[in-house]
Amino acid sequence: MSGFWRRFATNRGAVAGCVVFALVLAMAAFAPWIAPGDPWSMAGPPRTDAFDPEHWLGTDMLGRDVWATIVHGARVSLLVGGGATLAAVLIGVSIGAVAGYLGGVADDLLMRFTEFFQSIPSFILALLIVAIFQPTVGSIVVAVAIVSWPPVARVVRAEFMSLRSREFVQAAVVLGQGTWTIVLRQILPNALSPIVVLSSFMVATAILLEAALSFLGLGDPNVMSWGFMIGSGRSTIRIAWWTSVFPGIALFLTVLSLNLIGEGISDALNPRLHERGAA
């Protein structure tokens, strides 16, 4: 494991990603202290230019401070990113494990099901789910999870298929260990590393999805989000570009940092494959 950390620490992109992501985490955790007050309420004169001494990222058409909305918006991005990824990993691991361990007809059916979800426009499905169940943080997490699990299922299935026939698993079968014990104690721990790599990319994708939903007006109306700010500044982009531009940069940096971390983990886990890029 120390080899892993050494390799990870020499990857400049991954370290930079960690620093940026730590800043975003801190921003979300300490939002009420960094930008006190309600981000929705008027903080200054409407449409203050960016780089104003009072409001250094400007204010929007309703006088909301853009910096404050970015600080508070980090919360829902991370919440949805983390929550949806956790849920998607649970779904994906269950389906992939069953398919890979049982094989045969179950595998065939489950993989068709997975392929189905991969080939449809998942963004529109997410949109439909959030619209019909009303936009709340909960429904957004569920919708994002429902469209994000297929890659996990495929990876876990492949791992389970190859691990199932390995000697240590067969030894466990001979020892009389139950199926659950074998799956949870023998196979799953050995399949963890690709799941970890995939998860950090999935948090990034989930954050982008949440932003896209809020951009179209399907965000939780009670929480400030980056997608909402970009969307609300859209019609006034000609006269107040900063309203949309800065939340977009926050979004970009967060997603980029997560992708860099994911690649760093992937390279550090598979030092020989590192020139192959992410799957």
């Binding site: 990034a204 982008l208 932003a211 896209a212 951009f215 997608g227 970009i230 969307g231 859209r234 982009i237 000609r238 570009w241 949309s244 531009v245 977009g248 979004l251 970009f252 997603v255 980029l256 992708n259 860099l260």
Partner: peptide, 17 residues
């Protein structure tokens, strides 16, 4: 890496701008 991390709706707005 850059385009893979950029939300497409935001890219559209920047292009318009």
């Amino acid at each position: 890496l850059t385009f893979y991390a950029t939300p497409i709706f935001w890219v559209g707005l920047i292009f318009i701008l």
